[in-house]
Design a protein around this nucleic acid. Structure first.
Lengths: 185, 185
DNA sequence: TAATAATCAAACAATGTGTTTTTTATCAAT
DNA sequence: ATTGATAAAAAACACATTGTTTGATTATTA
């Protein structure tokens, strides 16, 4: 990748991170980004077609970090044995990585409009939930699996938001414990 | 209220209901509303300052229906006795009213951007959750009450979305059962 | 160094928002 | 039924933002 492109993309990412901690996503204009990143209009559009495309790019860039190691270990995560224990480790892992990306998580999750970001998050996270429930013993539970999965995903986001709102007060282990206790049944 | 105003407001509400079932909230322009409602630009702005203000107005109009009777019965809903049973009735009640407002719930909840609507919904629903947990015996549960409340609210929305997505396949009693079973601990 | 690729600056059309003004129609109260 | 008040319509407007295009300039790669 061309050094100039790299520099531009970084500038845009950083500008976005600052702006999303200042104002609502909706209220951020392309012009705001250009000013903060100190680039020209045509340069921005050489990289991204829309603001949403930028957000998706940033989201997936984050999620590479947050889910990468966890994903790599997915094969070694043998959910068929020691189901809860392995799942707990995975969840702890994710919370650790989330904390590394504080600035963006705080900015985006404190935001009014975060649907695109959360849509991407759900996509990534649902893989784990699916493979978890593929091994979960479905005893005496009349709730449809699809609904249970949605609940498991959404509950994670709730716990995540709680953590962010409380300024990462709890340790990743502790917050993972909250999630496991409340969402996994 | 002036008959002319009433007519206009109804026309705008109906136009919105149709449009939200056609396209994303973001993509709906004021012009779309004017065309569909057959009113003039200045008329719209005489009633609402922004599109968001319209959405809030519509949301609260719906929630009056959905929560009204439930709210009226709030005092008679003695959560201190027969906690679960009373709560179940309340939840069933709400689901019944939601079904009466099908068109808007389908349109808005199938939508990518529904944060404003859901924010209002949370506001209304959290009252019940709060008074529920005010009476709930807090035994052997290390999860913070605030987090538990958020989970209870968000889980309701998950179940609601599930119901909407499945075209209201289940009866209100059945879907309420799903909610109680999965969210109340 | 020469070819390539990215940036910049500036101007532009297109779209949407929100305001204003004037004229016309409807309503509510007497 | 008349009248005074209120709402709607129509049209034009300033303004902000988006996304595109141009040509000149600068940095990079090989």
């Amino acid at each position: 990748m061309d050094k100039r492109s790299e520099k531009t993309v970084n500038a845009i990412y950083e500008a976005f991170a600052k702006l999303i901690n200042e104002k609502d996503y909706d209220e951020i204009t392309i012009q705001d980004l250009l000013d903060k990143a100190n680039i020209s209009r045509s340069t921005f559009y050489a990289h991204y077609k829309t603001k949403d495309e930028l957000l998706l790019s940033i989201s997936n860039h984050i999620f590479e970090h947050v889910f990468s190691k966890s994903l790599q270990e997915e094969k070694t995560h043998d959910f068929s044995k020691d189901l809860i224990l392995n799942y707990r480790h995975l969840i702890e892992h994710i919370f650790y990585h989330v904390r590394d990306e504080k600035e963006l998580f705080v900015g985006i999750l404190s935001n009014k409009v975060n649907s695109l970001f959360l849509m991407e998050f759900r996509k990534h996270f649902s893989k784990f939930v699916t493979s978890y429930y593929a091994n979960y013993p479905m005893i005496n539970n009349s709730i449809p699996v699809e609904l249970r999965k949605s609940l498991a995903i959404e509950d994670f986001i709730v716990v995540l938001k709680y953590w962010v709102k409380n300024n990462f007060k709890e340790d990743p282990e502790e917050i993972a414990e909250f999630y496991i206790k409340s969402a996994i049944k």
